[in-house]
């Protein structure tokens, strides 16, 4: 099964289950943050978007101390695939599973739009349906999505091919003008060094059905399903 972690204040948890289960036919279920362990048949973890713990203190700061997160960490350290979107990306950074942090958007606005995303590194399990240079269209909706990392962490991300997605223009141009939130290097999504933990601000679960504007998100979720079922 695939575990969608539900924190108090998560709001994309059910959308994620819908995308995984109803659209992509995977056995996805909600797992309450207070559970001390992931289900024993867990093949992949999804940390959804929302405002866990009201985003008090810092986005994702409290969620990292939820009981289930200790097991999510163990699962990740053992090589299990973990995908965090939006608030989930913030939680994974606060937990130390991914480097860097997410800060208030450069222009202080909450952004809700469909973003163009340039595919860069395709070395991870999450990129099995992606090719370098491809442009994906996936919605973003966040107030604190400005990615920050120190210079040495950023250099390591580049050198190790951990940057999967960068914000770009419709034709793939990456510049300050195509950077919606001030993220360093237009970074929209990164993996850990091992390539089994992926965090991104865009919402793949909102781009899985043609009637809702596109299906590029399904490429990422299907890759997670394949990685989990192949493990």
């Amino acid at each position: 099964m695939f575990a969608v972690i539900q924190f108090p204040g998560s709001n994309d948890d059910r959308d994620m289950v819908h995308a995984m289960k109803t659209v992509l036919s995977a056995d996805a279920r909600l797992v309450w943050h207070g559970d001390s362990e992931l289900p024993s048949d867990c093949r992949g973890v999804l940390v959804p978007g929302g405002f866990s713990y009201g985003d008090y203190l810092r986005c994702g700061a409290m969620a990292r101390f939820s009981p289930v997160m200790a097991d999510v960490k163990r699962f990740a350290e053992n090589g299990g695939p973990v995908l965090g979107t939006c608030n989930g990306f913030q939680v994974l950074c606060e937990s130390g599973l991914l480097p860097g942090a997410l800060r208030r958007n450069r222009d202080l606005h909450f952004i809700c739009e469909t973003a163009s995303l340039l595919v860069e590194s395709t070395g991870s399990v999450f990129a099995s349906e992606l090719s370098p240079g491809q442009v994906l269209r996936i919605p973003i909706k966040h107030g604190e999505g400005c990615y920050f990392a120190h210079a040495d962490d950023l250099a390591a991300l580049e050198a190790n091919g951990q940057i999967v997605l960068r914000y770009c223009g419709p034709d793939g141009e990456v510049s300050e003008a195509t950077n919606p939130n001030g993220s360093l290097g237009n970074i929209a999504g990164i993996t850990n060094r091992a390539g089994n933990v992926f965090g991104l601000m865009p919402h793949p679960e909102h781009a899985v059905e043609p009637a809702f504007g596109g299906t590029d998100g399904a490429r990422l979720l299907r890759a997670l399903i394949q990685a989990g079922e192949g493990a």
Binding site: R103, R106, L108, C146, F148, H150
Partner: peptide, 10 residues
Amino acid sequence: PDVLDPQGKA
């Protein structure tokens, strides 16, 4: 010091 502070700027 090297982290952007858009709230402080505003």
